[in-house]
Design a binder for these strands. Structure first.
Length: 281
DNA sequence: TATCAGGGCCTAG
DNA sequence: CTAGGCCCTGAT
């Protein structure tokens, strides 16, 4: 079926944004996204039109919230003040990015893995886990491995875990599996928690620190006021903004600004030597 | 071939 | 509170 999306929406930028690691460009300009047991094939056409291979109820129930399409990102971008020129450049460059609402279990495991790894390395780990333990689904574009549930992963042996190239993170993953599979940590109930409660609950898992907890809260639970500070964001805060956090003043949009800047800094390293708004110095 | 840094976190002191 | 170690991969 066909749909129209008029707000900011770039599949390539979303796929390269460092928040999802399994999105893939297939043949014929078709993108594939996976979340939980849902698989979407989507092809951009002209005039904001997209061809998709799911039903209207599936689109509304799963993919519309997944892509955060009820939020108007172009308005959010337009509210960036002229005094914050670096932020404005980042948002102009990153226009089309969206904060995804992804599966919490997959994000918990994925962002534990992410520490001290490059994005290509994270992708290969996640893909390996899906191949080894996830359900297999046949699609017109080939077979897809879903990300395994905590229950499915609870049977993994230590030897199998080490095959996934997790390194020192293996015991962290083991702890996450144990807590979630046993019900000690119920990721669904966390939706009803406020930001602080959610943050603390996530940090109860071994290997989940401030940065990873913020990533899960932002990229799974849609907590857009939270800002994960990784090495790139750190470079921008220190090098461009003189150590002064530029995100807090954006309130509920702070996490979205973080995503524009992460994308901008990663794809345009020269930007790290840009001058910010003159008023800041 | 060698070296470095990577969407950090834990532990020891 | 801070420094050091960590398991491995992709990039240079």
């Amino acid at each position: 079926m066909y749909i129209e999306i008029t707000d900011d929406f770039s599949l390539s930028k979303i796929a390269e944004s460092g928040q999802c690691f399994r999105a893939k460009l297939l043949d014929d300009g078709v993108w594939r996204f996976i979340t939980g047991s849902n698989i979407l094939h989507i092809r951009p056409l002209a005039h904001n039109q997209y061809e998709i291979d799911c039903t209207t109820p599936q689109w509304r129930a799963v993919w519309l919230p997944y892509f955060d399409l009820d939020r108007d990102y172009s308005i959010i971008r337009s509210r960036i003040g002229k005094t914050d020129s670096y932020m404005k450049n980042a948002a102009d460059t990153g226009a089309g990015l969206r904060i995804l609402r992804q599966d919490p279990w997959e994000m918990l495991i994925t962002f534990i893995i992410s520490q001290q790894k490059t994005i290509p390395s994270i992708k290969s780990c996640v893909e390996k886990i899906a191949e080894m333990y996830g359900d297999t689904v046949e699609t017109p574009y080939g077979c897809v491995h879903l990300f395994p549930s905590a229950g499915q992963m609870s049977h993994i042996t230590d030897e199998e875990l080490s095959q996934c190239k997790l390194g020192y993170r293996a015991p962290y993953i083991r702890d996450a599996i144990g807590k979630v599979a046993s019900g000690q940590l119920d990721l669904d109930t966390l939706y009803s928690y406020d930001d602080i409660q959610l943050f603390n609950a996530l940090k109860s898992v071994h290997g989940v620190g401030d940065k990873v907890a913020n990533c899960i809260a932002l990229f799974a639970y849609g907590r857009t006021s939270l800002v994960p500070v990784d090495t790139w964001i750190r470079k921008v805060i220190d090098g461009v903004y003189g150590g002064q956090n530029p995100f807090t003043k954006y309130g509920n949009d702070a996490g979205i600004m973080q995503q524009y800047i992460f994308y901008y800094a990663q794809h345009n390293k020269k930007s790290l030597s840009e001058k910010p708004a003159g008023r800041l110095f």
